[in-house]
Design a protein around this nucleic acid. Structure first.
Lengths: 334, 334
DNA sequence: TGCGTCATTGACAACGTTGTCCGGCGGGAA
DNA sequence: TTCCCGCCGGACAACGTTGTCAATGACGCA
């Protein structure tokens, strides 16, 4: 590899002069600077970042531990937001995707710490509680789309409760009084929060909460497993029948569209729907388009990294708002 | 930061002995080794990778330039496959997501080269031709999901022609003789190849190619733009009406399900469908489930990195097979 | 007892870069 | 003409690590 000394030899100066040129030091004659720059070009010289790092005792690297973030649809926007802000501060992100096991995570962490990362980001592809490895206390760290109740670390998560409220409110505003909820697996953080938001919206509208209107669309319930079509069936069997449904996620909503057809019901005509996630593969391609709450992935990524660069000692959990994406499914047309 | 010398001082040896322990050199007395290891634990020492790198003249890093790969659904599997193979060879991947502009790409490349990456991977989120930056000639490089006709670099792309053939063959085997194709924007590589596969399958079945059966589901055609619902309409207006449709991608297929309902036609009963991509958000959630050709993302990532570690001088384009994911949409039930 | 051998440990250089310090040179002022 | 100052370039050290070689001591064998 071509080093600074090779450039010096080529340009006929000392290597220190080359260093000055590279680092835009004043105090190099214009003529010399030009000659050096030409040599750099000619030899295709690039400063060795390892040597710089050793000398400066700074890596310029921020570790990004991704729990499936990069392989799940659109959670990648977390990474995108993080990379944007890192780049604004002349830092680069070192991304490691870990699969769900301890040993793999430990390896990733060791690798990042040996590279002397200046900060660590731990991001999950869905909103959940995580075990924070003790090594993360050693460097400035943030959590994205996840949190910890034991280790106090700044966390950036979506405001699922408010989203649940908004998704329900949209339907209430259309005059619906009997609104079903097809909920996520209750072991998931988002499931509980969105349900809470649903209940708050009903309460605010002075509608009594009817537990029969809440059914699970996935996971285990009672003896066996449950599925979205079954959830639709049980809602449709109720008396009175709900006139609107809040779906726990867009995949549920999609299945709801099809299952309702079995009852001769069309979304947007006979029944209204709202949902969560704004999966760009699903929501706009349904007919009518699905009204859904978009996760603030990009914003979480940006906020988390922004926090790293501002010396706030505040380790609380920030809840970032969803965006309401209004299409047609929450409206009824005759 | 705690260095090897701090450990040596703590353990009461020379720093060279610590180095030996760290690198599992034989020729350290067991007692000494133990003492050093305790000091390492106590001080929480980690070798500085920058110093190692400088000494060894090897970075152990492979650069992964991602053209939106990590932010598009499931293209992230390319990264996953790449990371798996890299890790098997004790290399780590440095991932940079570039947005679609020259300057950004140049920055990413500079950064990676300054870090002395041992190889470069350029991956695109969809199958297309790319301009290969000249710097990539300097280090071993591979292209994933993209190719170049000017620079000769090993490339790993999906076999879209064969997939087009298979998607059509599935329908021919069910006895269909009049099969529509809703094609991608023809500027896309996959569009042309899948069409070619469709035509080859017809030819093999001795069915004359009817250009009216091929309609675009996106992009520009004739005077204005075209959409999937319009494509369905024009196919349904044909005489005789096609009894099956090959959809250019799962998003098209999804819209086709809904548009066909307008004609009172149900997929899986009145008309058969196949598609491409196996988007896990779409294909299994349609009803009936969508039969579709899964892109070999993981395999491409693995193959590309595998190639880097085997000294094959073969710079040809490898086409990796799709997987046929048979659900129910290609079958007709009465 | 003396010498060779082996096991164990330590001293030193070098990787490429940059900060500090110093020396040399040219120009302006007394 | 001489002295001083400012400007430019070079020598050197240090960052943390590992490969090479040497030093030390113990031990076995003649």
């Amino acid at each position: 590899m071509v080093s600074i000394k090779d450039v010096a030899k080529h340009a006929g100066t000392s290597f220190k002069t080359v260093s000055r040129v590279v680092n835009n030091d004043p105090g190099v004659r214009e003529e010399t600077r030009l000659r050096v720059q030409q040599s750099i070009e000619a030899l295709n010289y690039r400063p060795n970042s390892a040597a710089r790092m050793m000398r400066n005792q700074k890596s310029g690297v921020i570790g990004f531990i991704s729990d499936e973030v990069v392989t799940q649809p659109y959670a990648g926007d977390i990474l995108l937001g993080a990379q944007q802000v890192a780049s604004e501060h002349d830092k680069i992100l070192m991304v490691v995707n870990i699969e769900h096991n301890r040993r793999h995570q430990q390896q990733a962490l060791d690798m990042l710490l040996e590279r002397r990362v200046e900060a660590l980001v731990l991001a999950s592809y869905f909103h959940r509680e995580v075990e924070v490895p003790p090594e993360m206390q050693g460097v400035p760290s943030v959590l994205v789309n996840c949190f910890s109740t034991v280790e106090k670390l700044p966390s950036f998560v979506p405001d699922d409760e408010q989203a649940g409220f908004d998704a329900t409110r949209l339907l209430l505003e259309q005059g619906h009084r009997c609104i079903g909820l097809i909920s996520l697996d209750p072991r998931i953080e988002a499931a509980r929060l969105r349900l809470a938001g649903y209940q708050r919206a009903l309460q605010q509208a002075e509608i009594a909460f009817d537990p029969r209107l809440v059914v699970q669309g996935e996971g285990r319930a009672g003896q066996g497993t449950c599925s979205t079509p079954e959830a639709v069936d049980s809602l449709m069997a109720l008396e009175p029948r709900p006139t609107a449904i809040v779906c726990g996620k867009d995949e549920f909503a999609m299945q709801v569209y099809f299952q309702l057809l079995r009852f001769g019901l069309r979304v947007g005509h006979d029944i209204a729907l709202t949902s969560f996630d704004n999966q760009r593969l699903i929501a706009p391609n349904l007919s009518p388009g699905l009204t859904t709450m978009a996760l603030p992935h990009l914003a979480m990524g940006r906020a988390a990294l922004g926090h790293l660069f501002k010396p706030k000692a505040d380790n609380s959990i920030r809840r970032l708002p969803f965006s309401v994406i209004e299409r047609e499914s929450h409206l009824l047309k005759s």
